[in-house]
Design a binder for these strands. Structure first.
Lengths: 137, 137
DNA sequence: CTCAATGCAAATCCTTTGCATACCT
DNA sequence: AGGTATGCAAAGGATTTGCATTGAG
């Protein structure tokens, strides 16, 4: 599993335990994780890990676009996920918090029409659907 | 302008200067406002107004569904707007921060299809488009 | 008069920073 | 050595809370 190492090298970021493990953990998680989630998960694995290292690593990984951050409604903490899973939209369960990534998107034509109607040049968008997953209904 | 007073009475909330003026200010604003925006605007008008009063009033107004809160990408503060302007989506200018409310929505059929494909019961959604407004392009 | 609303200050929560030390090449 | 990364502790910003006082109905 040296894939993560390659990702880092390709961005010219140094390979450090914190960065490596953050990528790995985000890759294996199926939803979003917060800085503190990552800290709790990695603390037992990385000697003396500190929360600020996690925050700094997340900032750097986001800067080189390996990961992306998002803020979900009603959550104050910033959430992180691997970049390539982004550009998906989300089904977010209001009961158990599960996040399902979906890849279809009904927005493209809509964005074009906004461009025409409001002379607004759309460069990106977020679309999150809230509700109840199969298990929680 | 006793409309706001009626709104409050209908919810059984007491009519106080803070609540009244928050509703009025949100009504007249065309975008979102933060707790601090409201505090700054109302401080000169309301004697001794304190920030915590604003926060408490916002919580209560949201609890009775007169207003709604949202968190926008890359903003850490919670944003507020009148409830009836909600269910709109937003064009958010990355340059000047202007927010344009739009009332069309391409999501309804999409939500239905999620229900079928993922057995996920969608109850609400957010859709925000980021880009550049006419003035900032 | 009574209970909810308020002001103020202190407390919290999440995140960021400063600085001295440890690590990598 | 030279620069980045890290840990720790302290600083910050947004929001919340405790408590005594004020105010609305």
């Amino acid at each position: 599993m040296k894939m993560y190492k390659k990702w880092l090298k390709d961005t010219q970021l140094k390979v450090t335990p914190a960065r490596l493990n953050i990528l790995k953990t985000l890759d294996q998680a199926d939803g979003f994780l917060t800085a503190d989630d990552l800290f709790m998960t990695l603390k037992p694995k990385i000697n003396n890990l500190s929360l600020s290292t996690v925050y700094r690593a997340l900032d750097q990984l986001e800067a080189v676009k390996l990961i992306e951050s998002a803020t979900l409604e009603n959550k104050k903490e910033v959430q992180y996920e691997l970049a390539h899973t982004k550009h998906a939209h989300h089904l977010i369960c209001l009961s158990c918090g599960k996040v399902i990534h979906i890849h279809e998107c009904p927005v493209h034509d809509f964005a074009k029409s906004m461009n025409n109607q409001h002379h607004f040049k759309v460069t990106s968008h977020t679309l999150d659907l809230y509700g109840y997953c199969e298990d929680c209904q």
